[in-house]
């Protein structure tokens, strides 16, 4: 029973790390109806920028400030070069644009900062704690807290601020939002900048854990099943989906994996998400959209 609990808790804490990436997807989808394929590339870009600046020997806070400014500038460029020419185009066109964007950001990140692997230590302890016989990583607990704080902040932002409400209006209908005076371009820059900041947080956490390297872009694939489970347009859903995926994939690897040759962590979440799509396509917390024809 102790082992089961250890796997379960470990899985939930891993899930919190998936949620950090899933949040970036949700933000952009919620505000623009675009599934941002470039979120993983943004995680890489932000983490690589931060670690490369740190390696110059500069102060952590200064490096963080420069990286944040860089992510805001990136958001501005994306709006100016990619999104603005595509206003009122079908969501599929925007989605395809983000695929191209992902390749561009990955290439720019590597061209700017190189392809070397970097260690990142931002002072978060990474030692196991013995909690009533369960070994739980202090780092993972820290990540869980970060995810919770981010969700709370974003939930408040969307529901209690004017900008947040404007973001939701833009997501519902670009043209209608424009006609009531919501500045679409500013809103898009804001939401991509916020998604960039979330990408930076995810990049710091994942980079501290596995090193800052190209593989960070692959983390995005871990977030996809979490999004399907939680709902593409729900901030709490991203968290719930991440936790569910984390816990279920770990339990499956331990208790089912040995019977099918192991290494099922990579595809099990997708099977779970596929099953979930058949039952509840909008996800656990996603809005049900009814379109009249």
């Amino acid at each position: 029973m102790t082992f089961f609990l250890e796997v379960l808790v470990g899985g939930l804490l891993s899930g919190a790390m998936y949620s950090l990436v899933a949040l970036g997807f949700v933000l952009i989808f919620k505000a623009s109806g675009v599934f941002n394929f470039a979120q993983g590339a943004m995680v890489l870009f932000s983490a690589l920028t931060l670690v490369s600046l740190l390696e110059k020997g500069w102060n952590l806070w200064m490096c963080l400030g420069i990286t944040l400014a860089g992510m805001v500038f990136l958001a501005y460029l994306i709006e100016r070069i990619v999104l603005r020419p595509l206003v009122n185009q079908p969501p599929l066109a925007l989605f395809l644009a983000t695929i191209g964007l992902a390749f561009a950001i990955e290439g720019i990140a590597q061209a700017m900062w190189g392809t070397q692997v970097h260690g990142l230590n931002v002072g978060i302890p990474d030692v196991p704690l013995n909690v009533k016989g369960l070994l739980i990583s202090e780092f993972d607990i820290f990540t869980g807290i970060i995810a919770a704080v981010l969700v709370a902040a974003l939930a408040l932002f969307f529901s209690k601020t004017r900008v947040g409400r404007a973001l939701r209006a833009v997501a519902d209908d670009h043209e209608a939002a424009l006609t009531v005076g919501i500045p679409l371009r500013h809103i898009w820059v804001i939401v991509w900048a916020v998604a960039g900041i979330v990408a930076l947080v995810a990049g710091i956490v994942w980079g501290s854990r596995v090193g800052v390297q190209f593989s960070l872009v692959l983390i995005a694939y871990k977030a996809l099943p979490a999004l399907i489970l939680g709902g593409l347009d729900s901030v709490p859903g991203a968290i719930a989906g991440g936790l569910l995926i984390g816990a279920s994939e770990k339990l499956a690897e331990v208790y089912v994996g040995p019977f099918v040759g192991g290494a099922i962590e990579s595809w099990f979440p997708y099977m779970l998400a596929l099953g979930f799509l058949l039952i509840r396509p909008e996800g656990l917390f996603g809005e049900v959209h009814i379109e009249r024809v």
Partner: peptide, 30 residues
């Protein structure tokens, strides 16, 4: 370990349970 190997918690919890004397690591990249 499933490619690319970003997540290995389940594997290492099993290893802890099995208590091996030595480990041979045959990894690549991350």
């Amino acid at each position: 370990v499933a490619h690319p190997g970003l997540e290995q918690k389940a594997i290492w919890l099993q290893i802890r349970q099995d208590k091996p004397d030595w480990i041979i690591l045959r990894g690549w990249g991350v």
